[in-house]
Design a protein around this nucleic acid. Sequence first.
DNA 1: TTTTTGTGTCAAGCGAGCTTTACATATTTC
DNA 2: GAAATATGTAAAGCTCGCTTGACACAAAAA
Lengths: 69, 69
Amino acid sequence: MTNRIAELRKERRISQAELADGVDVTRQTIISLESGRYNASLLLAHKIAKYFGMTIEEVFLFEEEGNTP
Amino acid sequence: MTNRIAELRKERRISQAELADGVDVTRQTIISLESGRYNASLLLAHKIAKYFGMTIEEVFLFEEEGNTP
DNA sequence: TTTTTGTGTCAAGCGAGCTTTACATATTTC
DNA sequence: GAAATATGTAAAGCTCGCTTGACACAAAAA
């Protein structure tokens, strides 16, 4: 799973600190999400999507993983 | 945050075990999600939504919580 | 009546998500 | 050149998401 957070943030010229503040987490958390260290929780994903005025599916990309039958 | 998992599951006459199998978690996890013991991870939320042929936003309901300014 | 199917509880354990604090470095601004 | 702004790393700590395994009970099927 990947996400478009850094991309969307730069498009809109928003700093990590600004976003972190807007969705009520620390800057560390934003860094970790952008660098793929771990995935957002469902709640945080929703807050971030809402912050950008998009749906979760538009911000977080689930490229058909877990297809190991 | 609430979800419509139990509702959707019953509509389609699917058992908890069947759903658990379909999204690759244990039955315990489904029970816990349905009873609101905790929230799904983003990845699991996506799998469940996909299982029902819906979006995350349609299955998981974020009723404007966290509005404590 | 016995067996099967579906739902639920309890408890221990591990890794993921997030926090806090502190430090490093590059770029801009004064 | 000094100060502010933006991004990044590292490590310790807590809670939450999910697992495993065992047991309980009700309703349907045999």
